[in-house]
Simulated assay, not measured.
Amino acid sequence: MKALVYEGPTRLALRDTETPAPGPGAVAVRPIAVGICGSDVHGYTGSTGRRRAGQVMGHEIVGTVTEVGAGVDLSVGDAVVVNPVLGCGRCAVCADRRSDLCEEVKVMGVDTALPGGFAECLIVPARNAIRVRQAHPACALTEPLAVGLHAARRAGVGPGARVAVIGSGMVGVATAWGALHEGAACVHVVDIDQEKLEGANRIGATGLRTAPGRPLIDVLIEAGVAKVDIVLDAVGSDDTVRSALGATRRGGVVGLVGMATPSLRLPDFTLITNQQQLVGTWCYAEQDFATAAHAVAADPDRFSWLIDRRVELAGAPRAFEELSSGYSPKFKVLVTP
């Protein structure tokens, strides 16, 4: 089979590799579409050190089952979305279907020993292959949408909540969708890019344009909005977290979704005296992923506009080169192996 192999910083090569076969409890999946995540691009450039030579990346995967191992409740031809987060399968949190909290958690396409979807075939534990009604390319958006849904749930978004989201890229729009899915009364998405804000409007939120360094509270007040219950920061810098705390009511919650910097300087006095909560959120629980998968598969046209571009596997090295050299899609580029 063909696979896109990472050979070191800024080097990807299409290679002939052995087609894997599933063992007990696993299935072989033929990817239909695989999203290029920002973390894949950072791995490609070598800036994070989270990718190793010889591995196959790609963790935003939709495809069809081509072969099944023993003891599997799936059939050849089934459409599946792949949850790339794997726990040990033995601990209490894994039993509770919270593999994202497992001490031994790994991610397919990120961890070297777990090949991802930039290939013509990959092996997936049956538990991580979510059967859906159709293998539509838009279903590759499940993974970032699950990130957004998990963020909303972690921050306690519920019916009637007043929510603001900082950032309107793919994760920001996904987070806005997650908040709306959980019943938020209003979701305001703030960004400096008017074109990306159109995506927030299209998903059902209200996009508000800002300027670099402008406090979020000023933008909300100008729009006739008071401090909100919850701010979900899809950027994650010192400035955006400080701005988020300033726009959150006393006793409110700031959800940290984006990771623009590995460490943060926080306004401790403000956080403590306002009795606000900072909530970290990473990946998703298994239920979050399944909910997002079924939502997209049920109505793919509602999400297809988030796909900016599609490239075949042979064209993926060029796409990575462009993404690392200034080309900035509004939302998502898909690889179609």
Rank of each mutant, 00 (worst) to 15 (best):
Leu4Cys: 13
Val5Leu: 12
Gly8His: 09
Pro9Leu: 09
Arg15Leu: 11
Arg15Pro: 07
Glu18Trp: 10
Ala21His: 12
Val27Trp: 02
Val27Ser: 04
Ala28Gly: 11
Cys37Arg: 00
Val41Met: 04
Gly46Val: 08
Ser47Leu: 13
Thr48Ile: 12
Val56Pro: 00
Gly58Tyr: 00
His59Phe: 07
Glu60His: 06
Ile61Pro: 00
Thr66Trp: 08
Gly69Ala: 11
Val72Phe: 10
Val81Phe: 03
Gly87Lys: 02
Gly89Val: 04
Arg90Pro: 05
Ala95His: 13
Ala95Ser: 13
Arg98Thr: 01
Asp100Pro: 03
Val107Pro: 03
Met108Lys: 11
Met108Asp: 00
Met108Ile: 12
Gly109His: 02
Val110Gln: 05
Asp111Ser: 13
Thr112Ala: 14
Thr112Ser: 11
Ala119Glu: 04
Val124Leu: 07
Ala126Gln: 08
Asn128Glu: 07
Cys139Asp: 08
Ala140Gln: 03
Leu141Gln: 03
Pro144Met: 05
Leu145Lys: 02
Val147Asn: 12
Ala151Pro: 05
Gly156Arg: 04
Gly156Ser: 08
Pro159Thr: 11
Ile166Ser: 06
Ile166Phe: 10
Ile166Lys: 01
Gly169Met: 00
Met170Ser: 06
Ala174Gly: 11
Ala179Leu: 08
Leu180Cys: 10
Val189Met: 06
Val190Ile: 15
Asp191Leu: 07
Leu197Asn: 01
Glu198Ala: 12
Arg202Phe: 06
Ala205Tyr: 04
Gly207Asn: 01
Gly207Cys: 07
Gly207Lys: 03
Arg209Gln: 15
Thr210Asn: 08
Leu216Tyr: 08
Leu216Trp: 07
Ile217Phe: 08
Val219Ile: 12
Leu220Arg: 03
Glu222Phe: 09
Gly224Thr: 09
Val228Leu: 10
Gly236Glu: 02
Thr240Lys: 09
Arg250Phe: 13
Gly252Leu: 10
Val254Ala: 08
Leu256Lys: 05
Val257Pro: 01
Met259His: 13
Met259Gly: 10
Pro262Trp: 12
Leu264Val: 12
Phe269Ser: 14
Phe269Arg: 15
Ile272Glu: 13
Leu278Gly: 10
Trp282Arg: 15
Tyr284Met: 07
Ala285Asp: 10
Ala290Gly: 09
His294Asn: 14
His294Trp: 10
Asp299Arg: 14
Phe303His: 02
Trp305Cys: 05
Leu306Pro: 01
Ile307Thr: 04
Arg309Val: 01
Gly315Phe: 05
Ala319Glu: 07
Phe320His: 03
Ser328Thr: 15
Phe331Gly: 00
Val333Phe: 04
Val335Glu: 05
